[in-house]
């Protein structure tokens, strides 16, 4: 049975960013459940626990203490259990090369954190919508690349 809401998870060490993130989802039409973690270690501990509810889309901040977003990405990509999770990199900035590299490492989405709340809402809504399309129309997730 299809769930009628989308599970969203974010790992970001910045409190303000977590706030913007959860606030933004309140305005999005698609029903979402948002879970946040303060860094990569907390995130991975949760995902690896037996009763974890795996997210449909996982947002990873790249620059986190203890375990970076890229390390999380590599760990997740190595575990077949997480193969259905769409991974969105959610970062302040990176060079073109870094962005391509995270895609090559298996990220599906790269979001440069917008400096405008309206844009943030728009971007997140689009991510969720497109992911929803992939999700509901059985589209090939291997080809799912999206960048903002």
């Amino acid at each position: 049975m299809q769930e009628d809401y989308i599970n969203i998870t974010l790992a970001d060490d910045d409190e303000d960013d977590r706030l913007f993130f959860t606030d933004a989802f309140d305005d999005i039409k698609i029903t979402t459940r948002v879970k946040t973690f303060n860094d990569g270690v907390y995130l991975m501990d949760y995902l690896n626990s037996d009763d974890a509810l795996l997210p449909n889309v996982l947002f990873l901040d790249l620059n986190m203490p203890r375990k970076s977003g890229l390390e999380c990405l590599k760990e997740i990509k190595q575990n077949p259990k997480f193969k259905d999770i769409a991974i969105a990199i959610y970062s302040t900035s990176a060079s073109e090369e870094d962005i391509e590299n995270t895609f090559i490492q298996g990220a599906n989405i790269y979001i440069k954190k917008p400096s405008d709340f309206k844009t943030l809402k728009k971007v997140l809504a689009e991510v969720v919508t497109i992911n929803w399309q992939y999700h509901t129309n059985s589209m090939n997730k291997d080809n799912f690349l999206l960048r903002f």
Partner: peptide
């Protein structure tokens, strides 16, 4: 639609496959 150009897409998928193959 995707935020990237077709050539970047092609490059990324090719390199990703090479990486998977290597792993």
């Amino acid at each position: 639609t995707t935020g990237i150009t077709p050539s970047a897409f092609q490059r990324i998928i090719a390199k990703r496959r090479a990486l998977n193959q290597q792993n």
